[in-house]
Nucleic acid binder design. Sequence first.
DNA 1: CCGATCTGGATGACATGTCAACCAAAGAGG
DNA 2: CCTCTTTGGTTGACATGTCATCCAGATCGG
Lengths: 175, 175
Amino acid sequence: MTSTSRPSPTPTASVDPTEPRWLTPAEQHLWRTFMRMRQQLDAQLARQIQAESDISIADFSVLVVLTDVPEGRVRVLELARNLQWEKSRLSHHLARMVKRGLIERAECTEDGRGSFVVITDAGRRAIEAAAPRHVELVRTLFFDPLSEEQVTQLTQISERILGAMEGCPEALSES
Amino acid sequence: MTSTSRPSPTPTASVDPTEPRWLTPAEQHLWRTFMRMRQQLDAQLARQIQAESDISIADFSVLVVLTDVPEGRVRVLELARNLQWEKSRLSHHLARMVKRGLIERAECTEDGRGSFVVITDAGRRAIEAAAPRHVELVRTLFFDPLSEEQVTQLTQISERILGAMEGCPEALSES
DNA sequence: CCGATCTGGATGACATGTCAACCAAAGAGG
DNA sequence: CCTCTTTGGTTGACATGTCATCCAGATCGG
């Protein structure tokens, strides 16, 4: 999946700058394993939360931010930045969540264009119901298999990659 | 996002088995960083391939498998297993790819129900056009920031987590 | 050979995400 | 003030993913 093997015969030690730097077998293996791992992880977390509660994992993420914040009340763009979602995705999603009664809108008096998102009681109940099993699964699938050392390593690795992306030519989602 | 902080006051050293094992601040930090990292990574790869070629990253993944296989020809379920996609997702996606001329169907004589998927010339051209820049970006974003040691570490980590999921109570996508 | 069941796969309804275009309020700059 | 640009946010069309259901061909037990 999303793979990157050399599709053609093999000019093994090429220094041709027009020839892309194909992945070595070891790199290839990491890339595939990594992708498969994160994909399974996502899928399991999504499936579990969907199956055992009334909300999706996307709802969950939104609600998490809202419970983390004073009065359960945030500006939409603040939310978008926090979640790193495109604003249009967020807009659509918030509309659906309003329809389901998980959140409400509130007018923003300081800025006539803006609007606030507020968590409702139903929303609070929903996330409180979903959270414990979710954390448990995160632990089981992600933390339990790792040693303390590996946790440290993975932290550094993630920070490295993330850091590298922040200064990348490719536009980050418009923030 | 998809967070797991303790939503309430703090019974720090609780051994209550009904109380979920909330994440420590360090774990929390890793979890958030990791999720953000993989999300950015995905987004960038998807955006780039979409912008610079005629295919999506999903198309790309499918085509990769097809170019990896004799005669560019695979059974649908084989493809599903390889990609770890649900069969219905795959079915829909293949239909779209046929419509775009990237692949074709071929009858399966050994098994009357089954069908083969075959890559077309257009499909081959499409992936060959997309691959070099894609690998290059994978390198830039993922491998270049890491030391050799970290590559080794991440390989082990990914294998660990993936391994743990294979024997998990939660159903893996029906394979 | 025959029904019961399993398997490979397609389908429809629906949830979700993306892109581009739009809109109104807020800040410039003159 | 009065345009011009920016910003915060929504919208519609469309691509994609999920779930449940369906269906025909294969297999299995007699």
